[in-house]
């Protein structure tokens, strides 16, 4: 081994203070601690600067519109009036749809993988599903435009004929819509819900299952009434993580949501989302106010996702603690 202990191969101290300093340097603990500490500190600094920059650069818009920015519905770059409500609405609606579709599918699949599938099948299917998380969102968007929209254009209108008396299904369907974006988002959050929930369910102690089965419960009753409640905090954490992911997701939504800054009561109408409007308009935003308004939208998005994420981490952490005790 070339790396012999430094205390032995350090040259003998002969030059007073300089040599003593050199010796300490070779031992290097203080330096190592300082350098790595600074790197760790950098993470906190970067995050702080990020918040500060978003806050400072959105000042012009915050001063111009105040809190009414969040509830105003007019987004008109030409006249310089900026209100965020259509985008907030779009983000909330698409995210809610994604959760409605994604949670049952994701938790169901996680239950199957953790409780029912034989280990080999479970690990290979989980591997496939985790790979799905690695697919870049622009590729999901590409498939959304050229595969999913044509399919939905076949399926949705006949269903609409039957259900058009319900306001949220009314109106013409062009393919790009809040609904399409919700479905795309659901696909994107599935792997997050599945892989985290599966791990949480796997960590439920076996005596819980054995106890329920011994009392005569069926496999499903054991899972649904004993295992899932035991793992509920962790599952909730995975859902919150997926929620934050869905709200911040940009490309796939931008490509299928229709990019129309209106508040439509129908899910089948085109809409817009916070992330999508930033992606579409930021590069061409001329004027400080326009840019400031877009940065303020970024600040809003940042604040909401940080809150949701923070809650998710605490939930997952509390389950992990319960699991180890």
């Amino acid at each position: 081994m070339s790396a012999l202990p430094s205390a032995i191969d350090t040259p003998p101290a002969s030059g007073g203070a300089a040599a003593a300093f050199w010796k300490r340097l070779r031992a290097g603990d203080e330096i190592a601690i300082a350098v790595t500490f600074l790197s760790a500190l950098t993470v906190i600094l970067v995050t702080a600067v990020l918040v500060f920059e978003l806050y400072r650069k959105s000042a012009i818009s915050r001063h111009a519109f105040g809190w009414s920015f969040l509830i105003s519905t007019t987004w008109d770059p030409v006249s310089g009036t900026f209100g965020a409500l259509p985008f907030i609405y779009g983000t909330l609606v698409t995210t809610a749809l994604a959760m409605i579709i994604g949670i049952p599918l994701g938790v169901g699949a996680a239950i199957f993988l953790a409780e029912l599938a034989p280990p080999l099948l479970s690990s290979s299917l989980s591997f496939l599903i985790e790979l799905l998380a690695a697919v870049p969102s622009v590729i999901i968007g590409l498939l959304g435009i050229f595969v999913m929209i044509p399919i939905l254009q076949q399926i949705v209108p006949p269903v609409q004929d039957k259900l058009s008396w319900i306001p949220i299904f009314s109106g013409p369907f062009y393919g790009v819509s809040l609904f399409t974006a919700g479905v795309v988002l659901a696909i994107m959050i599935l792997p997050f819900i599945i892989s985290i929930s599966r791990e949480v369910i796997l960590s439920v102690p076996n005596d819980q299952r054995e106890g329920a089965l011994a009392l005569g419960a069926t496999r499903w009753e054991t899972t649904w009434k004993v295992v899932v409640p035991y793992a509920r905090k962790g599952i909730a954490g995975s859902i919150f993580l997926a929620l934050a992911r869905a709200m911040g997701e940009t490309m796939a939504v931008t490509m299928v949501v229709g990019n129309d800054p209106k508040i439509a009561h129908s899910l089948m109408a085109p809409g817009y989302s916070i992330a999508a409007v930033i992606a579409n308009e930021f590069a061409e935003a001329t004027g400080d106010l326009y840019q400031g308004a877009l940065i303020e939208l970024g600040l809003v998005l940042f604040g909401v996702t940080i809150l949701v994420n923070g809650a998710a981490r605490l939930l997952v952490m509390s389950t992990e603690k319960k699991g180890t005790s």
Partner: peptide, 13 residues
């Protein structure tokens, strides 16, 4: 938390 920041916000930064 930094890991959860939407990528578009990183772009703004």
């Amino acid at each position: 938390l930094l890991n959860g920041v939407p990528s578009i916000v990183m772009g703004i930064f």
